[in-house]
Amino acid sequence: MYAARRPRTRLDGGDIQALAAPADRGRGRTSTAYHVLGRITTSLPVIAAGAAARQHGPAAVTRAYALGTAVLAAAPLAALTATSRRHRPDRGDDQP
Rank of each mutant, 00 (worst) to 15 (best):
T42F: 01
G68V: 11
A59C: 04
G57W: 06
T62Q: 10
R39M: 12
H56M: 05
A64H: 05
A49M: 05
S43P: 05
I16A: 09
L72P: 00
A23L: 14
T69E: 03
P22T: 04
T32C: 00
R54A: 12
V61F: 05
A60P: 01
A73E: 01
A52E: 02
A51E: 10
R54N: 10
V36I: 15
A74M: 09
G50H: 06
A20F: 00
H35Q: 06
L72N: 06
V61H: 03
T62D: 07
A20W: 00
T32E: 04
A73D: 01
R39K: 15
G57T: 08
Y34I: 15
R39Q: 07
T30G: 07
A51R: 09
T42A: 08
A51M: 11
T62H: 12
A18D: 07
L19A: 09
A21H: 01
G68R: 14
R29V: 02
V46K: 00
R29T: 04
A49Q: 02
A48Q: 08
G50N: 06
A53M: 10
A70L: 11
G68M: 15
G57Y: 03
G57C: 07
I47P: 00
P58C: 02
G38S: 13
T69G: 04
Q17E: 10
V36P: 02
R27Q: 15
A20L: 03
A59D: 09
A66W: 08
A64I: 04
R39C: 12
A52F: 05
R63W: 06
A23R: 14
S31I: 04
G26Y: 03
V46L: 01
R63M: 11
T69W: 11
A53W: 03
R29Q: 04
G38M: 06
G50V: 03
V36K: 01
A60D: 13
R63T: 14
R27Y: 09
I40A: 12
V71Q: 10
T69L: 08
H56P: 05
L72M: 09
G38N: 12
T41A: 04
A49G: 06
R29S: 05
H56G: 08
T41M: 07
T32W: 02
R29D: 03
S43L: 14
A21R: 00
A51D: 08
H35M: 09
S31T: 09
H35P: 00
D24Y: 09
A33Q: 13
G57S: 06
R29F: 06
A49K: 00
I40H: 05
A73N: 02
I40G: 02
I40C: 03
A33M: 14
A59E: 06
S43T: 14
A53Q: 03
L67M: 14
A64N: 04
A21Q: 10
P45F: 00
R25W: 12
T32N: 01
V36E: 08
I47E: 02
A23Y: 09
L67D: 13
L19E: 01
R54Y: 05
R29G: 06
Q55A: 04
A60W: 08
A73P: 00
A18T: 05
A70M: 15
A60H: 13
L37S: 14
A60S: 12
A20I: 00
Y34P: 01
A59S: 07
L67H: 07
Y34S: 10
G68H: 13
T62L: 12
A20S: 02
Y34N: 09
T41G: 01
L37T: 15
A70F: 12
L44C: 05
P22N: 10
T30R: 03
